[in-house]
């Protein structure tokens, strides 16, 4: 067993878990943060994307103990004071989803992408979301939502 201490969405959590516990399972089962989805469980689909120390990672392919001492941001941590994050708002406004299963991962990947490239071209958006799959194939509106996200973030409007 390992003692894992992680700051998730600004709140410090400590749990004793098996060393082999994946970060995705730690978030979902230990902390009840089920917004992080497990889709393929083979590091292809990106539904489990969260940020560890500010970088997007697939939480199904990382042990919770690897993130010991780190700061983790999940989809639940994006909205502030009941107000959606601009990327969440853009996905809603552009209907950047169909069934919605991939959406938390898409949004976390988009937040990461826009941190590196605040004004991406369509090609850069497609390349930047390569780690995320939408099985409904709703990519057209997802790309639109990323463009709108970039605009909202650059404008600083909430």
């Amino acid at each position: 067993m390992a003692k894992v201490e992680i700051k998730v969405n600004g709140v410090r959590h400590a749990r004793n878990v098996e060393d082999r516990t994946l970060l995705a399972n730690f978030l979902r089962e230990e902390l009840g943060l089920t917004g992080t989805h497990v889709g393929c469980d083979t590091s292809q689909c990106g539904c489990c994307t969260v940020h560890v120390n500010g970088r997007a990672v697939k939480s199904c392919s990382m042990l919770a103990i690897q993130a010991n001492g780190a700061e983790v941001l999940t989809i639940e941590g994006l909205a502030k004071n009941g107000k959606l994050h601009p990327v969440q708002r853009a996905f809603s406004e552009c209907h950047g989803l169909q069934c919605g299963f991939c959406t938390p991962g898409m949004i976390m990947a988009t937040v990461g992408l826009l941190k590196d490239q605040p004004n991406p071209t369509e090609e850069e958006i497609i390349h930047g979301l390569e780690g995320n799959l939408c099985r409904c194939t709703g990519y057209i509106n997802i790309v639109k939502a990323v463009k709108r996200s970039a605009k909202l973030l650059r404008g600083g409007k909430r």
């Binding site: 990106g46 994307t49 997007a56 990947a109 390569e130 780690g131």
Partner: peptide, 9 residues
């Protein structure tokens, strides 16, 4: 290499 999430780790 891989995708952005893979490149971050």
């Amino acid at each position: 290499i891989g995708d952005p999430q893979v490149r971050n780790l």
